[in-house]
Computed example of a mutant assay.
Amino acid sequence: MADYAERRRTMVDTQVRPSDVTSFPVLDAMLTIPREAFVPDAMRDLAYAGAPITLTGSRQLMEARNIAKILQALDLQPGELVLEIAPGLGYTTALLASLVDAVVAVEEDASLAADAEAALSAQEIDNAAVLHAPLTAGSAKNGPYDVIVAFGGVQEVPQSLIDQIKEGGRIMAVFMQGALGEARLGRKIDGAMSWRVEFNATAPVLPGFARVPGFVF
């Protein structure tokens, strides 16, 4: 039987800490949440490898180091409400739920949404809900949110999501340009987003988040 607790410690010591992740709450979450419980059964032995894990089609679970770096950059606080876009099988949802008051996760793949809800329930995580809905729609009725985060690629963030962020709130995702990408943190100031680059990263662009080409004569 695999010693997943030991693999978690090794992941944190060899992948997360060397990536300048020093936040004790983030490190504790990465050491506590069982990543192997949120990947396809056939991929459990690869759960702690330092690479993305394919969930279905183009959807991936991001490598642990980049998840941790995003969590650290967001500087999440215990009382905050978070909207997560595209939770996949719920690993990042579980991490978020250990750091904030509540998480609303929106997943448009019905199978992933059902499996994520089951995995979170099995881990007795009761402050996170997975909703089956289009990713770009978010969940306005449960907002506004302190934080919106996608552990995946985007080319642009639709106004429909920006409208669901509180004034002063944050958005974070990996912005892709071709094969290259940047994890950017945005803050809502006077109703508009102000962005800064946190680190380089790549991730498949999530459904609905590709830039719509402009009409060219």
Rank of each mutant, 00 (worst) to 15 (best):
A2M: 11
D3V: 08
D3A: 09
T10D: 15
Q15S: 01
P18K: 10
S19A: 15
D20P: 00
D20W: 09
T22C: 00
T22I: 06
T22G: 01
T22K: 13
S23F: 04
P25G: 14
L27K: 01
A29S: 15
A29K: 02
M30R: 05
L31P: 02
T32I: 03
R35E: 09
A37Y: 14
A37S: 14
V39M: 06
P40V: 12
A42L: 11
M43K: 15
M43Q: 13
M43P: 01
A47L: 08
Y48P: 04
A51W: 02
P52K: 06
T56S: 13
G57A: 11
S58K: 12
R59K: 12
Q60N: 08
L61Y: 06
L61K: 07
E63A: 15
E63Q: 15
N66I: 02
K69E: 05
I70Y: 00
I70P: 00
L71I: 11
L71Q: 05
D75V: 05
L76E: 03
L76W: 09
Q77N: 04
L81C: 00
V82W: 10
L83K: 07
P87N: 05
G88D: 04
Y91V: 03
A94Y: 12
L96I: 05
V100F: 09
D101E: 15
D101N: 13
V104Q: 06
A105W: 08
E108I: 09
S111P: 00
L112F: 03
A114L: 10
A118M: 10
A119N: 15
A119T: 02
Q123V: 01
E124I: 08
E124S: 14
I125W: 11
I125E: 10
I125S: 07
I125V: 15
D126N: 12
D126Y: 00
N127W: 12
N127G: 11
A128H: 04
V130R: 12
H132K: 13
P134V: 09
L135N: 13
A137W: 01
G138I: 05
G138P: 06
S139Q: 12
A140R: 14
K141L: 09
G143M: 06
P144N: 10
P144W: 01
P144Y: 10
V147K: 08
V147R: 15
A150M: 14
F151T: 04
G152F: 13
G152Q: 07
G152E: 11
E156K: 03
V157E: 03
I162D: 05
I162M: 11
I162F: 06
D163Y: 01
Q164P: 02
E167P: 08
G169M: 04
G169K: 04
G169Y: 09
R170M: 07
R170Q: 13
V174L: 11
F175K: 05
M176V: 04
Q177N: 13
A179T: 11
E182M: 03
R187Q: 13
K188T: 07
K188P: 05
D190N: 14
A192T: 08
S194C: 02
S194A: 08
S194K: 13
W195I: 01
N200W: 05
A201N: 14
A201H: 06
T202K: 10
T202Y: 07
L206Y: 12
P207M: 13
G208D: 08
G208M: 02
F209L: 06
P213K: 03
F215S: 07
V216N: 09
V216E: 14
